[in-house]
Design a protein around this nucleic acid. Structure first.
Lengths: 212, 212
DNA sequence: GTCTATAGCAGGATAGAC
DNA sequence: GTCTATCCTGCTATAGAC
């Protein structure tokens, strides 16, 4: 039992995240989490103070960390493309989400937590928007800007970054719906095709900035 | 009191929808709904049989109906454009969501219900996907197909329709995040600009189907 | 740190009068 | 159809032994 040392806390974070994602904060009980984590009913209140504090800790110590891994996958993919042209940037964005470091279970967990938090925003959402989303969008805008011709309309640039992200996130979030519509599972053959499609679509899309 | 006739059921649907959207199914109590609807605690069980059945009725009699209004806005916009070229179709799609029949309160309610149901899919989601989403996607594909040159790859066409929808829905769903990033409220000046941006971006994007 | 036991409260559903 | 009163179940949080 080398694992039974001080990792009750970690197990609570793991199973808490999974259950919060699956059922939502209100629908999951402390009894359920502690039973899944194979520890005592009182452990949540001991380690975190309350059920609510465990929920916040899940976002700080699990969700945000996973987002960092996606961003790192993006950076590493791009590091392998020294030219960093538009196509490379967009493909790296799509790949980070669709072929990135998240397992299917993690993906579901990640987006379900986010969607639930978007539905009734709390402290967790504020942290996520400011620490994760905004810096990423601004970084992408900086990478795209040099490739545009003529003077850059900053607002339209940001709208275009958001549009690219919209396409990617839709295929990332709405996977079940997409699978039904195109009658295609997200397997290792389809995912590169999807990255390729998104890249082509968005690359053409962003060139609308150059034509006015 | 011309309204106090048999509309307890309607009031339950209205307040039930609002509260389910705001807080989620589990987090809202029968007591809370009946108090908001200004009726008796037992009314939900009398009119619907259970809290769960009220939830399903909300999707059937409120959510799906609102989706029908969006689609009708799309059809009417397009009816005013006899040529129905690609730009008209995409602009009508974007307009239906961004300038369509939903008030801000309805929009929040609508997407929150959907996001919650996407998080743990149940009977309500199945109904929505089959009765609302899939028919709409296929209709759009049919409208776009004639404008493409050469033989049409059906899968790539559907992926492109989904991409357009992804852009639109992202700006529809993530309104608070978008407002922060572009530092711009969704007012009557910004919304047409957004429709115009989405149309230009997606129009270029879909032309990637013609170049291979 | 972990456990058992329980206090204290809120939930959904129902029975039965009106 | 609507009401009140109530049953029973489940919850969070805590006290206190170990």
């Amino acid at each position: 039992m080398a694992e039974a040392e001080d990792n009750t806390r970690e197990r609570l974070l793991d199973h808490g995240e999974r259950l919060f994602a699956e059922k939502g904060f209100s629908a999951v009980s402390v009894r359920e989490i502690t039973a899944a984590a194979n520890c005592n009913l009182a452990a949540i209140n001991y380690h975190f103070g309350s059920k609510q504090s465990l929920y916040l800790a899940v976002f700080r110590e699990r969700w945000a960390q996973r987002a960092r891994r996606v961003r790192q996958h993006f950076s590493e993919t791009l590091a392998g493309k020294p030219r960093r042209d538009l196509e490379d940037v967009i493909a790296a964005m799509a790949s980070a989400f669709l072929e990135g470091p998240m397992s299917e279970a993690e993906r579901r967990c990640h987006i379900q937590l986010m969607q639930r938090e978007m539905s009734d925003p709390g402290d967790a959402l504020s942290m996520v928007v400011e620490d994760v989303m905004r810096p990423y969008i601004l970084e992408i805008a900086d990478l795209i800007r040099p490739h545009l011709k003529g003077p850059v309309d900053e607002r339209r640039l940001r709208l275009s970054v958001l549009s690219i992200l919209g396409v990617i996130l839709y295929f990332f979030l709405a996977r079940p719906a997409v699978s039904r519509i195109v009658e295609q599972e997200y397997d290792s053959r389809f995912k590169p095709e999807l990255v390729s499609h998104i890249t082509a679509f968005s690359l053409h899309g962003i060139h609308s900035l150059n034509q006015e």
